[in-house]
């Protein structure tokens, strides 16, 4: 296993409004170094928005995001995003580039690796997600599950210190979900600090160190999966669990 360069992550009292619509109303989240936090909750509760404030795809109105105790809000956002990998529900692979080029693009242009280094690294990364044979395919030629694993490989190739997953399996056919979850579980076991927005309660239960329940822009309850799933305190969480489990 690679030695981890993961960091701890803390979200402190993050507020965000789009016009009159207050999406985040003081959200807090703590992830230990190398820990995996799963964020669950009804749709529209602000989970995906919270994730985007962590790598500043969306700038919060108020509050702070800390990596190893240091605020990220003063960093250059582009440099920050190279340290934080993100995986999307719709994969967001670049359809005009081959699988290999999808991964080498940032390595060459941002990490300034030369062609050979970038290709070697990308191939190694593809091998780890089980897609070594697909390097020259176009994303459209892959199944959804394969595309998502390419997207994970693309993010990991930049050696991030934190990984964010935004409903990474929600767009997949049921039979393809497990392969992607397995890659994510491997990553968690390898000590990557992760925040996983998910509807996969089984995954949250077996992989997460922390499960955070969001509703109406705040984290209402969080704790180890046993506590959140077996002994939920907040009535809203109980109602949510009774609907999804």
């Amino acid at each position: 296993m690679t030695t981890t360069t993961s960091v701890s992550l803390a979200v402190r009292d993050v507020h965000l409004a789009f016009g009159a619509h207050r999406v985040l109303r003081g959200a807090d989240l703590d992830v230990a170094r190398g820990g995996a936090a799963c964020v669950i909750g009804p749709s529209g509760s602000g989970k995906s928005t919270l994730l985007r404030t962590i790598n500043r795809l969306i700038e919060p109105d108020r509050g702070d995001v800390l990596l190893d105790g240091r605020s990220v809000l003063r960093d250059d956002p582009d440099a920050l995003r190279q340290r934080i990998g993100m995986v999307f529900q719709q994969f967001n692979l670049f359809p005009h580039l081959s699988v290999l080029r999808n991964i080498t693009l940032a390595l060459r242009k941002l990490k300034k690796l030369d062609e050979d280094e970038a290709v070697a690294l990308a191939r190694a990364q593809l091998d780890l997600v089980g897609l070594a044979g697909k390097a020259d395919a176009r994303p459209a030629q892959l199944s959804g599950g394969q595309q998502q694993r390419v997207a994970i490989a693309r993010a990991l190739a930049l050696r991030p210190q934190v990984m964010l997953f935004d409903e990474a399996t929600s767009a997949l056919d049921p039979e393809l979900v497990k392969g992607v979850l397995a890659v994510m579980a491997d990553l968690a076991a390898a000590g990557m600090t992760m925040v996983v927005v998910t509807h996969e309660m089984g995954f949250a239960r077996s992989v997460a160190d922390t499960v955070a329940f969001m509703d109406a822009g705040v984290v209402l309850e969080s704790g180890p999966p046993e506590a959140v799933f077996e002994a939920p305190e907040h009535p809203r969480l109980r109602r949510f669990l009774s609907q999804v489990l």
Binding site: M1, T2, L128, V129, I152, A153, L156, R159, K178, L181, A182, V183, A185, D186, L187, A188, A189, A190, M192, G202, F203, S206
Partner: peptide, 9 residues
């Protein structure tokens, strides 16, 4: 679903 011990990094 269980970690295979393979490190995707």
């Amino acid at each position: 679903l269980t970690p295979s011990g393979k490190d995707p990094r």
